[in-house]
Design a protein around this nucleic acid. Structure first.
Length: 816
RNA sequence: GCCGGGAUGGCGGAAUGGUAGACGCAGCGGACUUAAAAUCCGCUGGGGGAAACCCCGUGCAGGUUCGAGUCCUGCUCCCGGCACCA
């Protein structure tokens, strides 16, 4: 029995596509454009895994389909090749990360080509290539020029084992995301990007994109915009005031104490001599704690009274000032007014330290729990002592603006907006990253001129972090000849910045470089940018829902502001492919031993089978387990397709007969279904319909060309090697990559007769074959004539008939 | 705790408020074969029945509707994210 000879066919077509540069994309064209982008991979030593294949196959199918629909399709890939694993490997083995990276890239490229992915390989980019990172550095200069990159002494997450600082997002459960090492907080001089300056636009412009709701929500939460008021509380016995942020200024009369973050600068001022020792001890303990340790203690509120007091601006009351680590220095002003009656955290703290709780909003019982409902309840006990002001009787929606205006008029407060989003910690004490285009002159950072870019990563064979535990520095700091330089503008002695950029940097703008990868003079040609942007479809893992996707949007908006890009958002439609689990429904992992590798399955079943199988598994977005048995099912399908066209003698046995009408209808329904499903990215149901077609076609005695030739084109995006081979067998000289997608005849997708469901009181009792377009009266008569229906009607009055044309007759009976 | 998504046969899954289970896997039966594999054909949610057919069935409990897997209310469990953000 002949089978699809994938081992022969697939490499042959891969060579054909490569040698003829079939998927080379012109920079511009009269055709409409379609930009179809994958999240490019980090080329790990492990090679591609079956999870990568899922997303890459999906975009490949869409790209091939769009080409056949007449689009000029941009479908590139490249390598996010800076990063920790190669550097960690270098520390262990001494093998230079550039070598490791090059080897891994070669392996990834080989594996991707084996899958028949139709990338334009002439547009490949590599973030570690100086010709690429030159432009990453260029963007940094633009950020620096605009005051969006600054140096700050900030408490950072220092990972001693990795010898580097990590962003909050790179820490999972208090451990480093890479390696799972301990992380401690420590103040350090760092580069920081002012992403908070774009918080509002990053939030607002989420309206412009077609993204999964869960991802939009995660970004909104990450940005965490909240509107409220800043309120100033005078210090008792000291000049100046402490400023707090609150979203509930309407509860100001309910404040019974205040809390400063332990690191707050006013702690020293307000602390009384009697409390100083306790305050200092608490503060020192808090700064030493890692975030994990702080989080672990959330169940028990802790804190210390400073001995000092502040004055409530609303009623002149003296409020005790405490410090507690449930107030974070990094959010708002690092200080709060505590309203235990109407805030859960304050309530717990007040309970623990026997502080008074006062009700200022009706509706709950503040002795039992904080009452935080914003919708219900009105203000009480909220009148100024001189009766000049009151919000009593008002619900929160009215009370908040009223008291905010009152405070503003007295210079004691103002409306304020705060974000959870923090500025982006942008430097790493690493070797394998982009060097900063910065030199230090007299303790000030100075931008290098653009003409001197790229600042190349210097050669070394020492990859261990330099410096000491107290003053950690990256490996570059040890390279004296490189570090010591002169400021090219002033000629004065200078030291190079020895930190490098984080891995996110290169991936913030790679989608732009694909459009013009060789350009030595500009980051991207403006005309190409205007033609291709934005990305029409972006597919990648949900793990990038906030980090990469937020950082890239930020840089894009900066580039928009300086006129480099023409669209406010880079990625119009975003889809996350689901995780491919192991055969045991567990996450694939080496330690569990359930990892399935692409090479082994392509060896065993061929690229087309693996592509088709992953798409047939279920919806693209869903997580689903791998099942090798089912791959064999797909192999059977491809073999059936092969035998439909090619006989035992290995020759085409398609004939020139007229296809039967019924078979032609199945073909046209299949064209319709596959087309619609491709537009909706529903690959699994498209494949199911192709199976239906093949089952029907297999039943026929003849092998009519008018039936079988269009089907090859439908199959082509999914199983391109098999389709090209059949297309050639059918006598075509050219690749089908740009053949016109078949159209369906609307008259041929409907049957002459329809199956009408007959219900009695909503329960299915019979189905009838009736002519399409049957009139209600006729359908009703046919239904009532049916024995199976009559039995249930049994002389009862038919009170009502629901008729859905060509679908259903529902006979509703009166009570008997 | 909060936010988002989900739960359908033995398994992966399919179903604009209108015949639940398309398609595939696994299983069973048949054809071909000396035999097996491969291939082709058929059956395959549960229960009852000799059959015609009947009853039950989409996580649980209600509701809306002529009609609910689909819409609404309240739960349970699973997955992802956030986690003292004032």
């Amino acid at each position: 029995m002949s089978r699809y000879p994938f081992a022969d066919v697939e490499p042959r077509w891969q060579r054909f596509w490569e040698e003829r540069r079939v998927f080379r994309t012109p920079d511009r064209s009269d055709k409409p454009k379609y930009y179809c982008l994958d999240m490019y991979p980090y080329p790990s030593a492990a090679g591609l895994h079956v999870g990568h294949i899922e997303g890459y196959t999906a975009t490949d199918i869409v790209s091939r389909y769009k080409r056949m629909r007449g689009f000029n399709v941009m479908h590139p890939t490249g390598w996010d090749a800076f990063g920790l694993p190669a550097e960690q490997y270098a520390v262990r083995t001494g093998v230079h990360p550039a070598k490791t990276t090059a080897d891994n890239i070669a392996n990834f490229r080989r594996q991707m080509k084996r899958l028949g992915l139709s990338y334009d390989w002439d547009r490949e980019v590599n973030t570690t290539d100086p010709a690429y990172y030159r432009w990453t550095q260029w963007i940094f200069l633009k950020l620096f020029e605009r005051g969006l990159a600054y140096v700050a002494e900030v408490p950072v997450n220092w990972c001693p084992q990795l010898g580097t600082v990590l962003a909050n997002e790179e820490i999972v459960d208090g451990k480093s995301e890479v390696g799972g090492f301990d992380v401690v907080r420590r103040p350090m001089r760092q580069w920081v990007l002012k992403i908070t300056a774009y918080a509002d636009r990053l939030l607002e412009d989420l309206k412009l994109v077609d993204w999964p709701e869960s991802t939009l929500e995660m970004q909104r939460n990450w940005i965490g915009r909240s509107v409220g008021a800043d309120v100033d509380f005078a210090l008792d016995g000291h000049p100046g005031h402490v400023r707090i942020f609150t979203t509930r200024p309407d509860t100001l009369f309910g404040a019974t104490y205040m809390v400063l973050a332990p690191e707050h600068p006013l702690v020293d001022v307000v602390t009384t001599p009697a409390q100083r020792a306790a305050v200092t001890a608490y503060g020192e303990a808090a700064t030493r704690k890692s975030d994990l340790q702080r989080a672990e203690l959330t169940k028990e509120k802790s804190g210390v009274f400073t001995g000092g007091h502040a004055i409530n601006p609303a009623n002149g009351e003296k409020l005790p000032v405490w410090i507690a680590d449930y107030v974070l220095m990094s959010y708002g002003t690092g200080a709060i007014m505590a309203v235990p009656g109407h805030d859960q955290r304050d309530w717990e703290f007040a309970r623990a330290f026997h502080l008074p709780i006062r009700e200022v909003v009706t509706g709950g019982n503040v002795d039992e729990a904080a009452y935080v409902d914003l919708e219900r309840g009105v203000a009480v006990n909220s009148t100024a002592p001189d009766r000049s002001f009151s919000i009593d009787g008002l619900e929160a929606a009215r009370a908040i603006p009223k008291i905010t205006e009152w405070l503003a008029s007295r210079g004691q407060g103002r409306r304020a907006v705060n974000y959870r989003l923090r500025d982006w910690l942008f430097s790493r004490q690493r070797y394998w990253g982009e060097p900063f285009p910065i030199v230090w002159v007299d303790g000030e950072p100075v931008a290098l001129p653009e003409e001197l870019l790229p600042v190349r990563l210097p050669e070394t064979d020492q990859f261990r972090p330099a410096g000491t535990g107290e003053k950690p520095e990256g490996p570059l700091a040890a390279l004296r000849e490189w570090v010591e330089t002169t400021d090219p503008r002033s000629g004065r002695a200078a030291r190079r910045e020895t930190n490098t950029m984080p891995q996110w940097a290169g991936s913030c703008w790679y989608y732009l470089r694909f459009l013009d990868p060789e350009n030595p003079d500009r980051i991207v040609d403006p005309e190409s940018e205007r033609y291709w942007m934005p990305v029409d479809l972006y597919v990648g893992g949900a793990e990038h829902a906030v980090l990469h996707l937020l950082y890239a949007r930020f840089w894009h908006k900066v580039l928009f502001d300086i006129g480099v890009v023409s669209t406010p958002e880079p990625f119009m439609k975003l889809v996350h492919q689901g995780t491919i689990l192991g055969e045991d429904s567990q996450k694939m992992s080496k330690s569990v031993g359930n990892v399935v590798g692409p090479d082994e399955v392509v060896d065993a079943f061929g690229a087309d089978a693996v592509r088709l199988y992953e798409m047939f598994l279920g919806p693209l977005e869903a997580s689903k387990p791998w099942n090798t048995n089912s791959v064999e099912g797909i192999t059977r399908f491809l073999d059936r397709v092969w035998r439909l066209y090619v006989g035992e003698d290995d020759r085409l046995h398609v004939d020139e007969s007229e296809p039967p009408a019924a078979a032609l209808r199945v073909l046209h329904r299949t064209i319709q279904k596959v087309t619609e499903d491709l537009e909706a990215l529903k690959f699994n149901t498209a494949i199911a319909q192709m199976m239906v077609f093949v089952n029907e076609a297999t039943r026929l005695e003849a092998r009519p060309r008018p039936l079988l030739e269009p089907f090859v084109l439908l199959l082509a995006p999914f199983a391109p090697h098999l389709a090209e081979e059949l297309w050639r067998h059918l006598g075509h000289r050219e690749s089908l990559a740009y053949a016109a997608w078949p159209a369906f005849d609307p008259a041929l997708v409907v049957e002459d007769s329809v199956t009408v469901a007959v219900q009695v009181n909503g329960k299915l009792r019979a189905t009838l074959e009736l002519p399409r377009g049957v009139a209600e009266a006729d359908a009703r008569a046919a239904a009532l004539a049916d024995e199976r229906v009559r039995r249930f009607v049994d002389g009862a009055e038919v009170r009502k008939v629901i008729f859905v044309p060509d679908k259903l007759v529902n006979l509703v009976l009166g009570a008997r």
